[in-house]
Design a binder for these strands. Sequence first.
DNA 1: CTTTATCTTCATAATTTTTTCAAAATTTGT
DNA 2: ACAAATTTTGAAAAAATTATGAAGATAAAG
Lengths: 199, 199
Amino acid sequence: MKKRVLRYILHDNAEKAIDLALNNEIDCIILDRMLPGLSGDEVLKKVREIKNIPVLMLTAKGSDQDKIEGLLLGSDDYVVKPVTPYEVILRVRAILKRAGLINLDKVIYKDLELDRKYFLVKIKDEKIDLTKAEFEILFKLAQNPKVVFTREQLIDAITPDGTIISDRTIDTHIKNIRKKLKKDYIKTVFGLGYKLDSD
Amino acid sequence: MKKRVLRYILHDNAEKAIDLALNNEIDCIILDRMLPGLSGDEVLKKVREIKNIPVLMLTAKGSDQDKIEGLLLGSDDYVVKPVTPYEVILRVRAILKRAGLINLDKVIYKDLELDRKYFLVKIKDEKIDLTKAEFEILFKLAQNPKVVFTREQLIDAITPDGTIISDRTIDTHIKNIRKKLKKDYIKTVFGLGYKLDSD
DNA sequence: CTTTATCTTCATAATTTTTTCAAAATTTGT
DNA sequence: ACAAATTTTGAAAAAATTATGAAGATAAAG
């Protein structure tokens, strides 16, 4: 899949938002239902008449009736405020995946490339064979580079439910991953865990 | 996360409070259960019918039954009076964090930037490596710049429960932090402790 | 069933961090 | 300026954490 920049609209003026949406290459719209001027519903309708851009509807109202209305109008998903920024990100990712704009099974970090679909690890076109546990750990790290993961979090990535295994096991997996990727992508953060970072 | 002013309601009249909550951009409500006029529970119910604003319930009743009631009605947290102002602040911060309105993991002071999520310290885009104890101390100082912290308070920041370690240990940590950040952000207040301040 | 690969644990070595200590330097109040 | 109290600092001991090789346990494959 071609690499691409994701563009989005986040605007406090309805007319301008519509104009931007229709006249630019936009991948996703996060739409607040309560805009000054036109309502979010009207914006959605106007945009949809012309272009079929994925839309995440954001609203303060929380009744089921509202949910149904919003989805019927054609928004691709619907969240009720207050909502954490992280949740919004998750929803947008899901929408973009559905629309085929991004591939969540693939992660690239520097010259490292992981693909869950084919269970493949490449480093500059050179294939690396990792075991399942090793792959899952590296994938989790690569999904959020620079973020520190505790051993417990990494255990969650390799055991489905709350199976109980020792923290030391993660150390061993990390050791083996490091040996297979010659360069040391994984940095240990003393007392906390591991992260994927070069510096 | 965008910087923003936090707005709150603290009012002695239930009807006015409801009116204010519904017709203004409010981020959080601190609600006393015993209001003249309508009860706090009723206010909460009325507000929640329309808007989903985070609510901290404040009450004199202390039975478990009350706690359950309050939470069921939809308040996000619940404290029993008497309560210190500081505790209220802590609770509100926790609520706002949960609601995604503030990010407690990040602190910025002048050209100093701490991020707990990435366990990262930057000073004007230059990364600094701190140990866990050093990070916790600097984080606590940076969270409340200009506030003087005793060595005992700083010990609390690096030891989970009341582990007993010497005051001199803090001196050493401060020394090491100062060495790593070249500029001296930390000012010692003779006879009291340390604070983060330039003047 | 046997063999092989993978996962996990364990013990020890290596590393890093935390804490203490004591002498030197600084600050404060008289 | 002096004495008392407090802080700074470098060095070293103590504690905690991580790396590693080897070996046992488990699962997968032939």
